[in-house]
Design a protein around this nucleic acid. Structure first.
Lengths: 157, 157
DNA sequence: AGTTTCCCTATCGAATTACTAGGGAAATGT
DNA sequence: ACATTTCCCTAGTAATTCGATAGGGAAACT
């Protein structure tokens, strides 16, 4: 009964870190998959698959050949962290595999639905607002920063 | 690449719904596993395992025999939804299986750590505050309700 | 005793997760 | 033209997790 709960998968984590490397390199510059993999300690072939998702999702543009690599398709301040996660990993929050609005509860559990909706809204509030540019520049919006700076937020449970 | 993301497992969902049935029955009354399973449409034997977790976690008290069943160990307004989820399903939020404070990021990804912390804090803000009594009585705290009532919170992405 | 109900362990198939392998296709440099 | 680089695609795989089921033992009540 240990490591379950709401988890951010390795795939989502890797996708965001790769996108951050691209953001840090500048909107014009391009990086090779191998360079990103080395910089972030991500298995190279696994990362290639993830970068393919980001490309199909319209977040990055790729080019083959000697001078090839990947670059962001849009400015880093117009790509939210949530965009990257959704493209690489599907819907941000789900309950038993389905998105909250599709759930049917009965009896005393009826009010669970708005509760899950509220949880999802509070996750979105952060991940839809924070962009690659924010994180790459280490400058989170004030509301997010104040959440993260609360010492209680760092405690175990 | 479909149903991943941050998911609330069937186990966590079932655990909360079972606890809500107990809360609705009153702090003193007790219900049999079979009755809870029928009321909420949860596989009976699967639910028994979950109720075992809740008991070992100190959230419910069980009794065997003809007049047996389960009842809450504490008043419903002193048990947060987060308590139930943690006991049944482990830590609320994790990244790649580990809890955020244990993560090590480098380069432009360094600020990811406070970001995940902020996400977790925002999830906790809801699930630590809302109790079984709130949900069973269909009366969510105002801040939570206003999050859930925003029509944008119900949209797809 | 006999029934009821919780309690424990074991098992199961299907899905998911995190990777790995191998080769094909396009762009570039000489 | 040719070799090299780098992306691109499909398939596979070992380990784990998820959701569920089965069977029987132990305690409590009538």
């Amino acid at each position: 009964m240990d490591n379950r709960g709401m988890r951010i998968s390795a795939r989502a984590d890797y996708a965001v870190r790769a996108a951050l490397e691209l953001a840090a390199a500048g909107d014009e510059a391009s990086l090779k998959a191998e360079a990103i993999a080395a910089a972030q300690g991500i298995p190279h072939k696994f990362l290639e698959g993830i970068l393919g998702d980001l490309r199909r999702g319209g977040l990055v543009i790729s080019q083959r050949g000697g001078k090839g690599g990947y670059r962001l398709a849009r400015p880093a301040d117009s790509i939210a962290i949530a965009d990257v996660i959704r493209v690489a990993d599907g819907p941000l929050v789900s309950v038993r595999g389905v998105r909250p609005p599709e759930l049917a509860y009965c009896g005393p559990a009826e009010t669970l639905l708005p509760l899950w909706i509220a949880v999802r809204a509070n996750v979105r509030k952060i991940l839809d607002e924070v962009t690659l540019a924010h994180v790459a520049a280490a400058e989170l919006p004030d509301e997010v920063l104040s959440l993260a700076e609360d010492p209680k937020a760092w405690t175990n449970p």
